[in-house]
């Protein structure tokens, strides 16, 4: 019993901790909005900080809380297909059109675009810096067998990257081409990989600008029209999923394409640079 004063204190302290935790469980969570919608979106919008900028503005105006689940475009679409989101906000036009065509979503609107950039090591072993022709640059990387880190995750960025390869007449395959590395993960993880192994990678500009672990990577190719990256927003079809919060979801969509929403998008800057360009029609 030599440590009596201490041990005597210990039990009440633990009891207090437990009851505090219990009280936390019972207490309603603060700052819970009256109404909320779930938006399945992409890592590029979330990681760049765009939603952090937009959502408070929308909530102040509408009282609706927006909960964003950030996934790759392919995964986000599957989540929306299962009815687990109210709104889909992604960037791969062909898939989006198919999504609507198959009846999963309604009322697709174009919201904004940004662009992809090819990043690579400053030493530029494939010698692609300076060109604006993405396909030519990709062909040169393949020729030099310079390491290239691909998302490999069926995301919008991955689909855009495959499109560029295709336009260069190539179809690199990780199994056959050891320089082509599929990370199977998000943009950030892929950039981390590229930074670690001095590889080239295709990235959306928003994520790139916000990315903190650039290492020796720099932008080597940008400005090619094929790198244009449009974002669309779609309401998940309430006829198919009756629980979808159609009214609130539609308000969010309407706001995004309204002058207020469009100027909010234009006003979002990373390191002083505008990242997303509103183009709602």
């Amino acid at each position: 019993m030599r440590r009596r004063p201490f041990t005597v204190l210990l039990l009440p302290a633990l009891a207090l901790g437990l009851s505090l935790a219990g009280a936390m469980l019972a207490a309603p969570r603060p700052a819970e909005a009256e109404e909320f919608i779930t938006v399945a979106s992409t890592t590029s919008t979330e990681n760049s900080g765009l939603f952090g900028h937009l959502l408070p503005l929308f909530q102040a105006q509408s009282g609706i809380e927006v909960r964003v689940v950030a996934l790759g475009t392919g995964q986000a679409m599957r989540v929306a297909e299962r009815g687990d989101a109210d709104v889909l906000f992604v960037h791969h036009r062909a898939s989006e059109l198919k999504f609507v065509e198959q009846g999963h979503g309604v009322g697709r609107r174009e919201v904004m675009y940004n662009d992809f950039v090819l990043v690579g090591p400053r030493a530029d072993p494939a010698g692609v810096a300076g060109t604006r022709d993405a396909a030519a640059a990709f062909a040169r990387i393949a020729q030099a067998k310079a390491p290239f880190a691909s998302r490999g995750d069926d995301s919008g960025t991955h689909k855009a990257e495959r499109a560029v390869w295709k336009s260069a007449g190539l179809a690199p395959d990780g199994a056959r081409d050891p320089w082509y590395r599929e990370t199977g993960s998000g943009m950030g993880a892929t950039l981390n990989t590229a930074a670690a192994m001095d590889a080239y990678a295709l990235a959306d500009r928003g994520t790139w600008l916000g990315f903190r672990n650039k290492g020796g990577l720099v932008v080597v190719v940008e400005g090619d029209p094929v790198l244009f990256n449009p974002y669309g927003v779609i309401l998940v079809n309430p006829a198919r999923h009756p629980h979808v919060k159609a009214a609130a979801g539609q308000r969010f969509i309407d706001w995004l394409v309204s002058p207020a929403g469009q100027s909010a998008i234009a006003g979002f800057k990373v390191g002083g640079a505008q990242v997303f360009f509103p183009d709602a029609k």
Binding site: N47, S185, G186, G188, L191, N192, G210, F211
Partner: peptide, 9 residues
């Protein structure tokens, strides 16, 4: 995981 993907190691 998120901060890692943002590169803020």
């Amino acid at each position: 995981a998120l901060e890692t993907s943002k590169g803020d190691l």
